[in-house]
Design a protein around this nucleic acid. Structure first.
Length: 374
RNA sequence: GCUGGAGUCGUCUAGUGGCAAUGACAAGAGACUGUAAAUCUCUCGCGCUUCGCGCUUCGUAGGUUCGAGUCCUACCUCCAGCA
């Protein structure tokens, strides 16, 4: 069982430590998105230097290339990528559901590779097998999402997610037995709570997931951030307190991080910081700015005064603006370092605030400044 | 000087009688939440009461025509060849 120590509580919020075979994660924590076993535009060294404690790769992408067998042969994804720290893998459920031609049945999902059209099938069992080969510390159960917000669709998807969870747990336990005999590192499974925006479905899903006694929980299918507060409260009031909770895919807006932690979330992952960075949208304490805007052409100040990242310590907005306007690779590198650092640090600061009993003050101070223009 | 070719939105370019006129780039702005995203969208002659209307535009000046970036004449500039 995954070891998780809670060292401080404040309502549903908590600060703790997740102990994985590849190292500890002090929570709350932001987990960088390394979909194809790389954080876009950044090296693992840069990720470590900006304070990232763990990263999340994606099973869907890794089975398409280079394949889970190869990663197993390489000694697991942490070694493969030279990350050497704690890692998560997402199951592939989210990606597959977003493909145009996907056929979902009771058995699993049939889909075509977005790269070359090759036919693939993913089932709860195959997702578990692939995730074990990829070898991250923490796996997500293979879940079913829907594109609609209609209750009957969400309910159907949720029930299927639960049925699949049974199979994920069975397969995971089998694979864990085998790994134990072979003396390999433990790997852990998070169940994924679904239920859309319906609190009663979320509650049902949380109860079901908890009953399966996984190592932790992912909370998935959260697309409407402004109704996240109540939904997380419902879910996290039901989930067992002593297991970590990961909010899948949320973290573009700082308010999501504060609301998440306040309602009992321990870890986040999100592609937004690096994607925003590549597109020139950069976080500052006064809100996001688009560094490509003409007004920064003669702005010789740092991107953000109080930032300790490599970008802000060494470069100013004039230079960043120039790099973006001339489409230099370094623009994306520096911007990604900054955005990733910003989000990692914000969650780290939230942790500190929890430990210092100043969460509400920090939340108020941060959000009022960041969203002042709204 | 002669002969041939060419001058279209900041740049390159499409357009050879029928609606300010194609595409790319540049420029300006916006979007992005478990990454098919170093991506995508919008604006891009001027003005206005901007799902529309008015005005002015394809080197310059005339002309033919109901109508000209497009045809004709002259001129200007550039390019190539010949002197």
């Amino acid at each position: 069982m995954l070891k998780f120590d809670i060292i401080k509580r404040d309502g549903l919020a908590r600060a703790g430590v997740i102990h994985t075979p590849h190292g500890d994660i002090k929570t709350p924590a932001f987990i960088g998105a390394a979909t194809k076993a790389t954080v876009k535009a950044l090296t693992m060294k840069e990720m470590r230097e900006l304070g990232s404690q763990a990263i999340l790769a994606n099973t869907y992408h890794l089975i398409l290339a280079p394949g889970s067998d190869l990663i197993e042969e390489a000694g697991g994804v942490a070694k493969f990528s030279s990350w050497h720290g704690p890692m998560f893998t997402d199951s592939g459920g989210f990606q597959i559901f977003s493909l145009p031609d996907v056929k979902i049945t009771e058995e699993g999902a049939k889909f075509k590779s977005h790269i070359n059209g090759d036919k693939f099938e993913m089932t709860p069992e195959s997702s578990m097998q692939d995730q074990w080969k990829i070898g991250a510390d923490i796996h997500m159960a293979f879940d079913h999402l829907t594109k609609t917000e209609e209750r009957k669709d969400i309910e159907t998807a949720m029930h299927r997610t639960h049925q699949w969870l049974d199979r994920c747990v069975d397969e995971h336990n089998k694979l864990a037995e085998v790994a134990k005999k072979e003396g390999k590192d433990e790997q852990f499974l998070y169940a994924v709570v679904q239920g859309g925006t319906f609190n009663d479905l979320r509650a049902e899903s949380a109860k079901y997931c908890a009953s399966k006694n996984p190592d932790g929980f992912g909370i998935g299918g959260v697309f409407v951030a402004d109704r996240m507060d109540e939904m997380l409260k419902t879910v996290n009031s039901i989930l067992p307190e002593n297991k970590p909770r990961h909010l899948l895919g949320m973290g573009q807006e700082p308010i999501d991080l504060f609301v998440g932690v306040e309602q009992g979330i321990d870890t986040f992952d999100c592609v937004a910081p690096t994607r925003m960075a590549r597109n020139g949208s950069l976080y500052t304490l006064d809100g996001r700015i688009n560094i490509k805007n003409a007004k920064y052409k003669h702005d010789f100040t740092p991107l953000m005064e109080d930032c300790d990242c490599e970008c802000c310590r060494n470069y100013n907005k004039v230079y960043l603006h120039h790099l973006f306007k001339t489409d230099e690779i370094t623009a994306k590198v520096l911007a990604s370092i900054h955005n990733e650092r910003f989000v990692v640090r914000t969650v780290d600061n939230i942790r500190e605030a929890l430990l210092n009993d100043s969460f509400q003050e920090y939340k108020q101070e941060f959000l009022s400044k960041y969203y002042r223009s709204l």
